[in-house]
Write a protein that binds this DNA or RNA. Structure first.
Lengths: 138, 138
DNA sequence: AAGGACCTTCCAGTCACCGGAAGGTCAAGG
DNA sequence: CCTTGACCTTCCGGTGACTGGAAGGTCCTT
């Protein structure tokens, strides 16, 4: 099947498949006589694997590691677990950072009347040296 | 003061200050006779404002809008509020997406014994067509 | 034969910077 | 006066993970 079919079946865009090949995440596909890339079911399964891992936020680098482990029938599950747990930790840190941001923003927004008047606690909260700002940030 | 001093006082790296000037987020700084950029307290305050807004996750584009509003003594606070609320929405969506990812990952990890044995529910969860996978994803 | 939907490669752009090279400037110390 | 080292300047390239588009070749149908 050609790249468009593989893209449709795997859920990975054709452009992205070429990109993955270029960076070596997947091996170079076979070619037809006319130079078109040619894919089989196994390649599509690999692409689906990649797609799922990426949708869980694994970096392309991590996906490369996971793919290697996936192909290795003798891998230790501990290796996979380590990658996944490292990723969970990173995800949790991102969540915490975003929650802190949300809290700060909502505090500022709740104090802003949001009408035609120019005074705005949001800008005042962002502005240093304003409204008794101690320079310690928000 | 030169760019290094402005960087230290504002918390924005010198490289980043030049970048902000290049993309037009801040006006081009004055220059000394020898060509060094020259900053005053007002510029440092602007940089601090930018630094705080960026630390709250506003895009550089949004910071530009906020700066315009900040400089406009007649702005309506509603304009600021709209930008901030749009950003909160985006932040909340990111948090939700990350939480879903975390949940999925933790489900997979909890089923993985994580030892020397090769069978691993994490990889099986990522692999399509495996273990009764319906192709419906995780 | 013609059209449209594919495919190919290559280049550029995204976002928000960071690193480094090559070269000019400044202030202090010998 | 000269050197040293810490600054500053510009410019170029790289990051991650793609995405868009141009120019040109191929395939299939009518």
């Amino acid at each position: 099947m050609n790249i468009g079919q593989a893209a449709k079946r795997s859920g990975v865009a054709a452009k992205t498949i070429r990109y993955y090949e270029e960076i070596g995440l997947i091996p170079a596909a076979g070619r037809t006589a006319s130079g078109y890339r040619d894919y089989g079911d196994a390649e599509v399964e690999t692409l689906k694997f990649i797609q799922k891992a990426r949708s869980l936020g694994f970096s392309v680098h991590d996906v490369g590691d996971l793919l290697t482990l996936w192909r290795d029938r003798d891998r230790a599950s501990a290796d996979v677990r380590r990658i996944a747990q490292g990723h969970v930790l990173a995800v949790e840190q991102k969540i915490a950072a975003l929650q802190a941001i949300r809290q700060t923003l909502e505090g500022l927004i709740s104090r802003c009347h949001g009408d035609d008047r120019p005074d705005c606690p949001i800008l005042e909260g962002l502005a240093p040296g304003c409204c008794g700002d101690t320079g310690q940030g928000l």
